[in-house]
Every structure is written in structure tokens, then in C-alpha cells.
Design a binder for these strands. Structure first.
Length: 504
RNA sequence: GCCCCGGUGGUGUAGCCCGGUCAAACAUGCGGGCCUUUCGAGCCCGCGCCCCGGGUUCAAAUCCCGGCCGGGGCACCA
């Protein structure tokens, strides 16, 4: 069939073919796409945020456009920004391989928001409401205008001045955007745009400003002012669009194209900012880069490569439903990237001495990477009378009468197995082990102390053991501990090595 | 309670807009085999999915209605 009518199958593939990369973006023109990523610097950047960031950046590049990083740091109180996170977020984005074309910080732009607030008040599209919050909510739920809504512009401007000059205290006045009071969603009705914070003590502006815009106001204005054409954000923002569109309509602006994606999480990895912050405070987590966490820094610390994160997010795409991917999935992507670069070493977890009788001195030469002999070898020296160490994990193989091959060394017969193991030399050749299907184990002679941190859900398991003594590892290396898994070297101190487990 | 979204193998996606070529594709996972001085990588074989019920139609994963399940929003947070 296929041979007779190749065109037929060709055509079919085109119509229903595989999607390569991201689908085209609506209303996107080469060179004119502007996207942005707008985090609040109140915590570390994590995989969940990375979805919006990667999509935004990827599309900006796909269309030769511009990618903007904007810090939405307009809440000095509830979600307080911290100086360190401005730096970290930028670093993490760069680590992911992003080219950031512009950086803007909302807290630098307060005067801009003020000018638009005033403009909207003058237009009669916004007003200063001095209702108690509960009172307003009550009216709003009934679809009734609050007493301040329809007062003349001069009165509104006077109140606005009082907000700015401090005559109103925190909680006493708020600027609201007029909307349809009968809007089916009560949250949309006359939503708040700017509020007062008495002692903001903002990390960047201190107490210079007391009137702060709320997210929907600042974001709506900035997206327009910065020329953003396409917005990618989580579906939790879908209803904010309804609110923001009022401003766009009043000012005659065109609303950007929006894509709402679902939430992205990884099974068994903690993402929540508040949970993380709490855990750190209580000493449960070591910090924002604790390997159990899903922050970009934590993933990096575990040896996850930036390409893997990007590829994962692109694979998940723009689906609107939430996705929880399994660690296996990320691991599979990462393994392909890391496998060719990771040199091999023997790490023996929970070492047990193995005494061998009848063997001569022998030096095992093992390639650093089996596929790249040019990288050289490591040498492990066996000395008669001195034990080698094997892992307790392999204990089931060490039964008297069993044969095992010490990888790249020789074959032995187990004589006795307990807190230490006795064996006698059998033969050198690998072929013998292979023909008899003897299992192979890794080992070290002296070894240097090494511990591997293995994150498992809420637990961080520390595997202590011995790493081959001459292993030339340095911090940041991603290596494979043979038969154990891929790890990233996290610290080397006084010859002691600490590694963080990535995956098998 | 009200207002939005979603629901394709164990997991993640493609296909749905424009019904047939979809007893459904890709990746991962799992089982088995080959190869290999790693239980790694690679190669081969196998397993496994259209939430349910109606309707429209010659024909439905795809369109319509209802149900069920899941997520999100309903802050002077972002």
C-alpha cells in the first residue's frame, strides 16, 4: 500500500502529523512579538513559574521578538519582595539560557500608575471609595453602587490627593475601577486598583510611596506601556483578564493575545512558595535550593540541566489543564543530556569489607566513560591481604557458594558472608563471568568518604559510603556513580565529597 | 453557593476548531529479548487509552445535550 501510493500517506502525515515544537501563535508577526515574564520577587523561581517563563521566552525567540522580565513587586505587605530574589530570578532565567531583552521593576514605576489613576478618575472611569471593605462587599454582592461611586470628579480628585498626601490611612480609601455592577462575577464589580500601605518599608523604595497599585492595575498598564503583544500565564489569571479589559476599553488600547496554561507540577516535589518558606523557617528544609524542592536552584543542584527543563515544558505545551508529570519523565529527558557528559566512578554505599584469598596484586584500568576512551582511565589498585569494599546494597549476591565479578577486576567465589565477606579468587577473565551469567558488582579499595543526598518526597536520605580515592571530581560536575545513578557533586572539603542524587 | 476552565494508555503529550484515512501516534513507564566489562546507554518485541449516557450522522475521540470527575477564581495577594 505504502509503496504503491506514497503520496497518499504523505498527505495524511501532513494533515494529522506530529507537532514539532510549539504551535504557531495567533496574531504573531515576525519581529513584532513582545512577551514578558512578571514574577513577584517574594520567593525563588520554581518549575511552576517556569512554564510561563519558558513559553514566553520561546515564542519571543521563535518570532524574533522581545522578551521582557518585569518584577511585579507591588505588595510590600502580604507578599513582600526580598532583594535577593530579584537577583536569583534573573540568574535562574539566564541559567535556563534566556536572553532577557529588558528588565523593568514595577516599584520604579509608581508615578506612572498614579498618572493613569488620575486620568481614569478624571474620565469618570475610576473613583475613590472610602467604604469599609465589608460594607463595600455587601453592596457589591447585591449589585448596588457604593455612595462614593457617583460623586463628582472634583470630589474624587480631592480624595485622591488625600490618599497621596497621607490624610487617609491604610484601609481608609481605595481607588476602584468602574465596571458593570451587574457583572455575573461579583469579584469583577468595581475592582480595586490602588490601596494605601502606611509603612511599606519596601525593599527598593522604602517609605517613599504609600499608595500602591494592585496587581491587575499595574499589570494592565505595564503590559500596554511596554508593548506586550502576547501574555502567557496560568489559568488562575483567566478572570483577571476580564477586569483588566475594562481599563483597555476606557483608554482605547488593544488587549494583548493571552494564553492561559494549566499548573505544572512534578510528582513528589514541593513547589508551593508558602510551604517552602515555612519549611525553611522551621529548619525542615536547608534553604531555597534544598534538593527536595522544585525551585530551579534545587533542580540545578540535583544535576538537572536547563535544556531538560526547557524541553519538558515545551513538551507539555500550552494545555489548559493542569499537569503533574512524574519524576521519571524529567529524569528520562535529563538522562539523555547528561549521559554523554557524565564520567563514571565507583561509589560504594554502606561499605562492607571483602577479603579475597589467592589473588595477586592487580591494577584495574577503567575508562572514565565507556563510549569515550579518549577521556582516559581511572586506576584502582588491588593489594593482596587488603580488603576491597563492596556495598551492602549488593548483599543478596554475596551468599556462600555464589560467584560474582568485581567489575573490571576479577571473579571471586564467596566463601563466607556476614559483617565482612570472605571470598577466594576464581579467575580474571570477564568471559568466564559472562558465560556463567555471574553478576557484577562495583567496589573500591581505600576510597574516600562520600555521602550522597537522595531526595525522596519529604525525606532527604543520606547515603554514606566510599568513593574511589582518585576520583577527580569537583563541585558542579555531573557524574555517574556506576550502578547507583547520576549525581551532581555538591561539595568537596578536606577530601570528603558530598553529592546530590539526580536519577538512575 | 456563584463564575470560569478541563477530562485521550500507569505518566506526559498529539489528534478535536474543519466528523471518515484513528480499533488512535510519540515519549516515558512496565514485561521480555539482543548487545554490552554498569542493574547505564543502544537495538528489537510486547503491554496499555478516547470519563459515562443519550442525540445528530451512512460515519463521532472529533459536533450537540445531560451527567460524573478534576482544576481554578470569587483578597485593599500576585
Amino acid at each position: 500500500m505504502r509503496e504503491l501510493y506514497p503520496e497518499f500517506f504523505e498527505e495524511r502525515r501532513e494533515k494529522k502529523g506530529e507537532r514539532k515544537g510549539l504551535p504557531p501563535l495567533p496574531k504573531a508577526e515576525k519581529g513584532k512579538v513582545v512577551t514578558r515574564f512578571a514574577p513577584n520577587p517574594d520567593g525563588a523561581f520554581h518549575l511552576g513559574n517556569a512554564r510561563a517563563a519558558v513559553l514566553s521566552h520561546e515564542y519571543a525567540r521563535m518570532y524574533d521578538g522581545k522578551f521582557i522580565l518585569r518584577f511585579d513587586d507591588t505588595d510590600p505587605k502580604v507578599k513582600r519582595p526580598e532583594p535577593v530574589f530579584y537577583e536569583w530570578i534573573k540568574e535562574d532565567l539566564e541559567w535556563l539560557g534566556f536572553r532577557i531583552d529588558e528588565i523593568h521593576i514595577a516599584s520604579d514605576r509608581l508615578e506612572l500608575y498614579y498618572s493613569y489613576a488620575e486620568k481614569l478618575i478624571k474620565m469618570g472611569k475610576a473613583y475613590v471609595c472610602t467604604c469599609k471593605p465589608e460594607k463595600f462587599r455587601e453592596l457589591r454582592d447585591k449589585g448596588i453602587a457604593c455612595p462614593h461611586r457617583d460623586e463628582p470628579v472634583e470630589v474624587q480628585l480631592e480624595r485622591w490627593r488625600k490618599m497621596l498626601n497621607g490624610e487617609y490611612k491604610e484601609g481608609e480609601a481605595v481607588v476602584r475601577i468602574k465596571t458593570d455592577l451587574k457583572h455575573p462575577n461579583p469579584a469583577v464589580r468595581d475592582w480595586p486598583a490602588l490601596r494605601i500601605i502606611d509603612n511599606p518599608n519596601h525593599p527598593r523604595t522604602g517609605n517613599k510611596y504609600r499608595v500602591w497599585p494592585l496587581y491587575n492595575f499595574a499589570s494592565a498598564i505595564d503590559d500596554h506601556e511596554l508593548g506586550v503583544t502576547h501574555i502567557f500565564r496560568g489559568q488562575e489569571h483567566a478572570e483577571n483578564e476580564t477586569k483588566q479589559r475594562y481599563i483597555y476599553d476606557y483608554l482605547g488600547w488593544e488587549y494583548p493575545v493571552t494564553v492561559h496554561h494549566g499548573r505544572l507540577s512534578i510528582e513528589g516535589v514541593i513547589l508551593s512558595k508558602s510551604k517552602t518558606r515555612k519549611g525553611i523557617k522551621e529548619g525542615k528544609y536547608l534553604g531555597w535550593d534544598d534538593p527536595r524542592l522544585g525551585t530551579i536552584r534545587a533542580l540545578r543542584r540535583r544535576g538537572i540541566r536547563p535544556e531538560a527543563i526547557r524541553k519538558l515544558i515545551l513538551e507539555v505545551g500550552l494545555k489548559r489543564s493542569d499537569t503533574t508529570i512524574s519524576w521519571d519523565n524529567l529524569a528520562a529527558i535529563n538522562r539523555k543530556i547528561v549521559e554523554p557528559i557524565a564520567n563514571r566512578y565507583f561509589f560504594v554505599a554502606d561499605p562492607i569489607p571483602l577479603y579475597i584469598e589467592g589473588a595477586r596484586e592487580f591494577i584495574a584500568e577503567i575508562p572514565l566513560h565507556p563510549d569515550y576512551p579518549e577521556r582516559g582511565v581511572r586506576r584502582l589498585k588491588f593489594v593482596p591481604g587488603r580488603p576491597v569494599y563492596v556495598s551492602k546494597d549488593d548483599m543478596k549476591l554475596f551468599k556462600p557458594g555464589n560467584f560474582v565479578r568485581l567489575k573490571d577486576l576479577f571473579n571471586v567465589e564467596i566463601v563466607e558472608a556476614g559483617n565482612e565477606i570472605r571470598a577466594k579468587f576464581h579467575s580474571i577473565d570477564y568471559e568466564v563471568a559472562r558465560e556463567n551469567r555471574w553478576r557484577m558488582v562495583h567496589w573500591v579499595t581505600e576510597g574516600r568518604p562520600c555521602e550522597v543526598w537522595v531526595p525522596e518526597g519529604e525525606e532527604l536520605i543520606v547515603r554514606k559510603g566510599l568513593l574511589e580515592s582518585d576520583a577527580g571530581v569537583k563541585v558542579g560536575d555531573i557524574v555517574q556513580f556506576e550502578r547507583f545513578g547520576f549525581v551532581r557533586i555538591d561539595g568537596v572539603k578536606d577530601g570528603k565529597v558530598r553529592a546530590v542524587f539526580a536519577h538512575k
